[in-house]
Nucleic acid binder design. Structure first.
Lengths: 134, 134
DNA sequence: AACATAAATGCAACGTAGTTGCATTTAAAA
DNA sequence: TTTTAAATGCAACTACGTTGCATTTATGTT
């Protein structure tokens, strides 16, 4: 269970083991930070059709292989790993300078006093600031 | 200072008191929840030009009359009132059913352990769940 | 009140992110 | 090997938002 091949990951999720998916997965496992559609196209040398890439990002997200991040830039970014469900322990740091998106953990659950009658299912936090490289 | 007319609000911010802005402001003060561009157009009977509306939303945001919310839906929403700067005390609740966006307060500052070298400037939180009406 | 001026408006055209329909190809089960 | 459903590629399209430019309007000055 520790180390799974790309093929095993796809198989486990009931996704066909195609060339496009293997290439995509390869890049997601290598890249540290969240990637935009354009980042991925560049990394994959524009060899993948636009709709195919978007459709695979959607499939991967639904399968819990990646998660989608909305960092207020107007375009979504995607990062390896599933977003914990009902979890209050995931946040994204967006560097205002280099625009890199980092996934990070929140130490203590957020204390959120939602009014009576409101049911919290999921909390997502965007932290904006300057990263260690900038 | 308690009750300010629309005109006073605009004057205070150095914005010209135009018909479009008065109408926009009127609706923002009436409407409880965050509004999308489309919500506003509908409320204003499509009498305002698209670019004029977007430009005014930008001006209002810069003037601190409204704030822009990214609810992860792909389109921005706008709500009356300024977003506290560097503040960790504002969060937005998005109903997964009716998609209404509520502004809410966070009781205690969020405990976010950003790694060494990362400087936090701003924290924005989206709470997803079901609202009291649904 | 009339004028001057800078800002606001409306229109059209554009840009970018993402989606959809459909014909063709491919993975994988029979 | 054959079959079949899913994946791909292409083109056209939608949605959100922006930009350039000519015209109009709010407001400060004479």
């Amino acid at each position: 269970m520790e180390k799974m091949s790309f093929g095993q990951i796809l198989e486990e999720k009931g996704l066909k083991k195609t060339k496009v998916r293997m290439a995509l997965l390869h890049h997601f496992l290598q890249l540290k930070h969240a990637q935009s559609y354009n980042d991925l196209q560049l990394a994959l040398k524009n060899e993948i059709d636009k709709s195919t890439l978007y459709r695979n990002l959607t499939s991967f997200e639904q399968a819990g292989i990646i998660h989608r991040i909305n960092d207020h830039s107007g375009t979504s970014k995607y990062a390896f790993g599933e977003l914990p469900k009902g979890g209050q322990d995931h946040a994204h740091f967006v560097c205002e300078n280099c625009e890199t998106v980092y996934c990070m953990e929140v130490s203590t659950p957020l204390q959120l006093n939602v009014p009576k009658g409101f049911k919290t299912k999921n909390v997502q936090t965007i932290i904006k600031g300057i990263c260690s490289k900038c």
